[in-house]
Structures are given as structure tokens and as C-alpha cells.
Amino acid sequence: MADNTYKQVFQTFPIQQSDGSFYEVVFVPQGANVSYPFTDTPVPDDLKTKVPKYDWQFGKWVDSGIDPNTAEIVTLKEINASLGTQLARAVAAVGQANKAISALTKQVATDITPAPTSTSASAGAASTSVSSTSASSSAASTSASTSDNK
């Protein structure tokens, strides 16, 4: 992205950011004038292994005096605490979801279980139906033979 149409500048911050630095690299159009909180003064090579901070009073980059490893550890601890909180919330949500699933599963099982019926009553009804059909068939047969005798 750093081609002839854009230039690299640094947005400075008075306090250390979550990544441990006091600035963020941004790109602006080549002809743009920058002013506070942006500077186009590059970070000197001797400060690249440290945690540089732009001193607006002197108009130059200075060593913030913060150990980069300590800054990174502090940042990682903050991220870890945040992730721990998010995990606890997610576990609680899963617990609630599992309870809801269990309740719904029990309700579905209750809804689809047929009501108990007496098998002897069902068999008797089927038997009566068959008997009625036989009687009708027998009556038709008698009626047919009577008409043939005439």
C-alpha cells in the first residue's frame, strides 16, 4: 500500500495501546499535511527494539522506558482475563441451552406418545365389524337365492 500515491504516517497516542505501542501506522495521500496526533517522522532504528513514544514537546521519538516484554506480558494478561470472562459466559449459556433442549425433548416425547388403549376393546370392535360384514354377505346371498327360486 505504501506506493507513490500514499505515505506512511504515525498516529500517536498519549497512553499505551492494547498491543503495547504508543502509535499506529496509517497511510495518507502523498500530498497530505499531517498534524497532531499524526507525525510523518519515522521511528529511529535505535528505538525499533524498544517501545518508542513520540514526544510532541521535543518533536521526536523517545524511548518510553517500558520494557517491551513486560508490555507484551501485561497485554497478554489483559487479553487472557477478557477471554476467561467470555468463556465463563459461553459455558453458562451452553448450560442454559442444554436445560432447554432437555425440557423440549421431554415435551416432544410426551406429545408423540399415544394414549394407552385397551387391546381387548379394539379386538372386540374389529370382531364386531367382521361379523357385521359376514351377516351382510349372508343376507345378500339368501336374497339372491330366493329370487332365483321364483
Rank of each mutant, 00 (worst) to 15 (best):
S141N: 15
F10W: 05
Q11G: 10
T105A: 11
S64G: 09
A109F: 12
F13P: 03
I112G: 05
T146F: 06
E72G: 05
T49V: 07
Q96N: 15
L87D: 01
S141I: 10
A144H: 08
F27R: 02
A115V: 15
T146K: 15
T128C: 09
T105M: 06
A100W: 08
Q17H: 04
D111C: 09
N149D: 14
N80W: 13
S64L: 00
N98F: 05
Q107M: 14
T128K: 13
A139T: 14
S102W: 01
V74D: 02
K77W: 06
Y23G: 06
T110E: 12
K7Y: 12
S136M: 11
V94E: 12
K50V: 05
G31Q: 12
S138E: 14
V91W: 03
D148Y: 03
G124H: 13
S64D: 08
L76R: 14
T70L: 08
L83P: 02
L76H: 11
L47M: 02
P42K: 01
V34D: 02
L83H: 07
S147Y: 01
P14S: 14
W61R: 00
V62E: 03
T5C: 10
G20F: 01
A92I: 10
D46T: 01
E24H: 04
K106V: 09
A139I: 15
T105Q: 13
K150Y: 02
I73F: 08
T128W: 09
G124Q: 15
Y54D: 04
T75W: 06
Y23C: 08
L76V: 00
K53D: 09
T117K: 00
A71I: 01
D46E: 08
R89H: 07
N149S: 11
V91N: 08
T119S: 12
A90L: 15
T110G: 10
I15V: 12
D63I: 01
G65Y: 00
W56T: 13
I101Y: 07
F10C: 06
P52M: 01
S82G: 03
S147I: 15
V108Y: 15
Q11C: 10
T49L: 04
Q30Y: 13
I73V: 04
T49W: 04
A2H: 13
W56F: 10
S131Y: 11
A32K: 11
K50Y: 02
F10L: 07
A88K: 06
T142L: 15
T39I: 11
S147E: 12
Q8M: 15
W56A: 14
K48G: 00
K99E: 07
D3V: 11
S137D: 11
D19P: 00
D3H: 13
S132V: 10
A140Y: 04
D63R: 02
S118Q: 05
V26M: 10
P68E: 02
V74M: 02
N80A: 04
L83T: 06
A115H: 09
A121E: 10
S18E: 14
V51N: 02
Q17A: 03
